[in-house]
Amino acid sequence: MRISLAAFISCLAIPAAAETPVLTVLTYDSFISEWGPGPAVEKAFESICSCDVRFVSGGDGASLLARLQLEGASSEADVVLGLDTNLTAAAEATGLFAPHGQPAANALPTAYDNALFLPYDWSWFAFVYDKTKHPNPPKSFEELAASDLKVVIQDPRSSTPGLGLLLWVKAAYGDRAAEIWTGLSDNILTVTPGWSEAYGLFTEGEADMVLSYVTSPAYHRIGEQDDTKDWAPFSEGHYLQVEVSGILANSDQPELAQAFMAFTQSPEFQSVIPETNWMYPATDIALPEGFETTRPEKSLLFSDVEAQSTRQAALEEWQSSLSQ
């Protein structure tokens, strides 16, 4: 019965090319959209690997990990691309990952060296605003709390930028985090499940500021020839999001997976990142014209283990401060 059911259903599937080896990359949704890095990355790697790259998407960064945990050792994926360092401790604990064998990426503002996870891009979180409407943006969380600006943020329970903001406030203020959230509560217009809803509310003019990245204005400048958007530098420093990839220990294509990891550090891969994923490349290559104006003076980042251990308490703090 099992076999006949499987045989029946596999008839419905598109038959895969049997001869060329297939590298399955599990990643987040926006990576494989027509404007994401996916298509160019696939083409570039296929031209050197004599293999077939197949992307499988599983929602956003957080749901990638859940997907892996669900599939366990029987996952089809060879490589996972799109976790961030707030999730790597949990990812490591699954025991599903194998060492990538590559030297650490060299263009990050803080060193990140992990045997299992290799950064492929990164950016700082920041509040993005329209500089024609707000010539003097707040310069810190405290100034934001004191202003009457309305911001839209993402829910840390369902989105990785939301979790990033939670840890940003915690890293900057420690025990005062709850107080900061209480101060911010009348500035938070609303909380969205994911990044795209929040950013949509901002571009529709519903909110004054949105939690996004310092590299978001670059999209508007380069992609839309619109120089009205900017990010507000905060004196506390800016929390980093470092996006990483890793090899699954159970991959049936370990050599290909290793080759792909090396490829993520190559100029061919890295040069695609800035203008498709709108993040900083992880290696030292030239940035596109107009990509960057200024950088934050100070970077904040919890270690993988700290991020994991801080999260639950910070979440409860966030929830109770905003529910009052």
């Binding site: 926006s30 959209s33 994401g36 998407s57 795209s196 949509g200 571009t203």
Partner: peptide, 13 residues
């Protein structure tokens, strides 16, 4: 709907 979700995640609102 899935394509729409992918597009809106890549700034193409």
């Amino acid at each position: 709907p899935l394509v729409i979700q992918r597009l809106s995640g890549a700034y193409k609102q």
